[in-house]
Design a protein around this nucleic acid. Structure first.
Lengths: 337, 337
DNA sequence: TCCCATGACCAAAACGTTTTGGTCTATCGT
DNA sequence: ACGATAGACCAAAACGTTTTGGTCATGGGA
């Protein structure tokens, strides 16, 4: 009836050693005879022993728990419009899976403002997605001496090298080359008004690509709220130029659909009269009419990589960082005339 | 330098009582003089005391942590296609926020298979989203005696009354009435092939509505993978009927866009020749061309309600359940001829 | 031979709570 | 006036680890 918990004492008894030795053997801490260690590990396995997270946390101060911080808009209303929820969901689930495999649960963390809030969470470290320039949340962690891995860099923190990122330059180049191959001669960009590395680097890569081709960059910066509507407008401005672009690289997913609508309203057909591609993949771009070519950043890979990186740090290893996660170009009808 | 933690002992000293009394006063457990309780609470406040989660967990066996279980598809590939990621993201974030406010962190939990995995998580309870019929994950929690709140009921568990749900019958009726008001006389439904309560109840409500109007129900069941493509096909079948429907209630978000495409391919214009509405709201329906009328289930409210319900149970209250969360009908161009 | 590392091991303390099992005083019913 | 009951309080045990500060051989260098 009474399913008593298997404690370290039970393991010690089974292996015929002290609890100290069990602890050392299992955590690779002190010095224990290899044979003894084997015996302890076997005994622990037989009994199905798992150290109590609470006891461990109490004594050592480490909980093993990881905080996941998604981009925190100021208002919830803004969130609705702004986030590529699709992308972050994939990211979060993948990170949770990878962390859990390594016995580190992942906390979904609401926007944090103060050190007290962070302290109360009782986490050992955090994954911070798309930090703004000199993101205050990063500072919060540092204040408590907790390790952080960011997904994409913090542009205001060049010294912080613990991050996972997409190869935004290469991805952008590849996409733009694809557009050129498909016949585009005047490629414009719908960039985002943000201080995220992803956004800044993508825009910069676009400009570099233009320069390398002796082409003049055509950039419209688009707002972060009311994504589709903003893109409809700024995309429309691009299309109304005397020298109309024949391809548009719309950074966000909703930008792309906004541009397609603007084109359609002007009697332009995608991809016949205009090629459209997006810098991020989602159900929206996959299922749009026509389906839209995108850079799939593989959020599953990014999330898993970030979790791995953080866990390795937590466990005392010195993993190589930063990590660059390759993306996949998803070529769809919107760029195939 | 040494920022020593404020412990219960410090509070006891400050209030001039024993640690037992502090514990009792703060947790409302034993019997303490109201004046003393005040004094203790004041002292704790002054010192900024927060009970150590680890210590509490160790002694009492309760961690205060909540597990969040999203619908677990068998393969990750299926997930990509199937989930309304948007909706679940909102749900999860809202639940995390509401739980955190009440000092209960929320764990994002990967698909669980065994009791051992669940035990290792060390949670006090769980929120289970969209359980399938007799969902095995619900059983996992029960096996450990942990409370669960589901979002939408488990159709195979009528006795389990701890759930939060949308008023699917009323929502569906309201939406269908709106279609009728907009001039529809033959409303068809694109239902989903699933054993979720949301899906089953919505379909049933549709049939009931038809019956109450003496109208024959027209239902096409659509697959859960390749949502948009499946809906394009089954929606097309509806449109190719000799007696073509003049409105389609497409349950899932991607069903609606699929139907719109099928209509467009047949030279039908939405909303002129066909009204289209969806049972779930998302960025996709908001930004579609034309924007699609939907039932916004208000996942923020559902998530927060579920978290509240579970937390109240965890804290020993006997909250009223089940909870019905009202939805909002989002009327958009797709149903305004 | 003696001394000093070093390796293998262990008993006990410590982490910060909650819970158990009390003591003591005041009040109530008879 | 007496025992019983309830209220207010407390000391100590308990939760299951990790860490501290050892002991005791064993072997190598002087």
């Amino acid at each position: 009836m009474s399913e008593r918990r298997v404690t370290i004492r039970d393991v010690a008894a089974a292996a015929g050693v002290s609890v100290t030795t069990v602890s050392h053997a299992l955590n690779g801490k002190g010095s224990v005879d290899p044979a003894t260690r084997e015996r302890v590990i076997a005994a622990a396995g037989d009994l199905g022993y798992r150290a109590s997270r609470a006891a461990r946390a109490l004594r050592s101060g480490r909980t093993g728990v990881i905080a996941m911080l998604l981009p925190a808009p100021d208002t919830l209303d803004a969130e609705r419009e702004m986030l590529s929820l699709d992308y972050y969901m994939q990211l979060a689930m993948a990170a949770a899976g990878a962390a859990f495999e390594r016995h580190h649960p992942l906390l979904l963390t609401p926007p944090l403002k103060t050190v007290a809030e962070l302290r109360e969470l009782g986490v050992d470290g955090g994954i911070l997605c798309d930090p703004g320039r000199a993101d205050p949340r990063l500072a919060l962690f540092e204040e408590l001496g907790l390790p952080v891995v960011t997904i994409e860099r913090d542009l205001g923190r060049p010294e912080h090298r613990w991050y996972v990122r997409g190869d935004n330059e290469a991805n952008t180049h590849e996409l733009l080359d694809h557009l050129a191959d498909a016949g585009a001669t005047r490629v414009a960009m719908l960039a985002a008004e943000s201080d995220w590395a992803w956004s800044a680097e993508s825009e910069q890569a676009y400009r570099a690509w233009c320069a390398s081709r002796g082409q003049e960059p055509i950039v419209e910066v688009t707002g972060l709220h009311q994504l589709e509507a903003s893109a409809y407008e700024s995309g429309g401005r691009l299309l109304d130029r005397p020298q109309r672009p024949d391809a548009i690289f719309a950074l966000a997913e909703s930008y792309a659909t906004g541009v397609v609508r603007a084109a359609r309203d002007r009697g332009l057909e995608v991809p016949r009269d205009l090629l459209v591609a997006s810098g991020i993949d989602s159900q929206q771009t996959r299922e749009a009419t026509p389906p839209i070519t995108t850079i799939d950043l593989l959020p599953q890979d990014q999330g898993a990589a970030a979790a791995r990186l953080l866990v390795e740090r937590l466990e005392g290893a010195e993993p190589a960082a930063p990590v660059v996660v390759p993306a996949a170009l998803r070529i769809r009808a919107s760029t195939q005339p």
